[in-house]
Design a protein around this nucleic acid. Structure first.
Lengths: 159, 159
DNA sequence: CATAAAATGTTTACAAGGAAACAATTATCA
DNA sequence: TGATAATTGTTTCCTTGTAAACATTTTATG
């Protein structure tokens, strides 16, 4: 047991003054840890988790409107426009303007896009397993449950 | 109880295909929620949480080296350089090149900087309380504990 | 000591992401 | 119906943050 373990606010000789208990700070640091691990393991694929998730959701909701997609992933419309265009150019996504509402855009995957999603599903949903986490399995499940509830993703948030 | 509550993967009519259980996605969405609330409540102050945390840590570690500061907050050196310069121009931070190692930079707050930190401490550490969270107090404490342990910030992570 | 290597910040050049203004289309309503 | 408002996505411009090359200083090595 080292000395600085006696002082809850000191880390690596730096006094964070209670920042260690701040939800915002902890979320940021945790996300960085996950992201760093992702890049180490899967950086070579060339898609980041957020980009894969765009393909993933289109795959599960063929014909989804671009705005709905953006909203469901909390990506801004302006940014989504760029993502969709580059996927279209790359040949993973098809855009269709429906006659019923010609303002909107309906998205679906090309055969190539579907193949990519299927091939890399184990990567994007499995990399987290290879992260050597200080949490045991039960704690990890609880963390996920609490985050889902907090963020309003979970049904638990419904009365 | 609505129908789509029976299907764990559907939200707002969109099938996320299990993304709701992904740690990376949940961390991102949770962080966005915290950040949005911050802006709503404290956007007028003109400093974001990460920027305030720079002042906060310097205040608790006067004379801290710029690199240590960057590391402790997981901010890259290149970015820290910009942050420090703008705080210096603004009159919140003083830089000092120590004789013992003239490559490095020691940071401290000006009187103005200290005053700002003190004045806004309740804002930056309290805004989270006003976020109407679906988590009760115990759950919030547990979430913070798990994040701290996961991210390696907590002493719990030490064997 | 002199040269090579490492450490510390800074600069430059770029990528990710967002806000605001915009164009096109559809809905509202007087 | 015709004008106004709202919706949907795009464009433009800007901010934030990063990577890579760099300058300076210190440490290590022959």
């Amino acid at each position: 047991m080292s000395l600085d373990m006696l002082d809850p606010q000191v880390r690596d000789g730096i006094n964070l003054g209670g920042l260690e208990q701040s939800l915002g700070f902890l979320l940021r640091v945790s996300q960085l840890k996950v992201f760093d691990h992702f890049f180490e393991k899967l950086g070579h694929i060339g898609l980041k988790p957020g980009e894969y998730s765009v393909l993933w959701v289109i795959s599960h909701n063929p014909g989804i409107r671009q705005g709905q997609l953006a909203q469901s992933l909390a990506i801004k419309n302006a940014h989504m426009t760029k993502l969709i265009r580059s996927f279209e150019v790359y040949g993973f996504i098809e855009r269709r303007i429906p006659e019923e509402d010609r303002r909107s855009v309906e998205l679906s995957l090309t055969e190539q896009g579907e193949a990519f999603v299927a091939r890399h599903k184990p990567d994007f949903f499995g990399y987290i397993q290879s992260l050597d986490s200080p949490l045991d399995e039960g704690e990890t499940r609880e963390l996920i449950r609490l985050l889902a509830k907090f963020s309003g993703i979970s049904r638990e948030s419904v009365q």
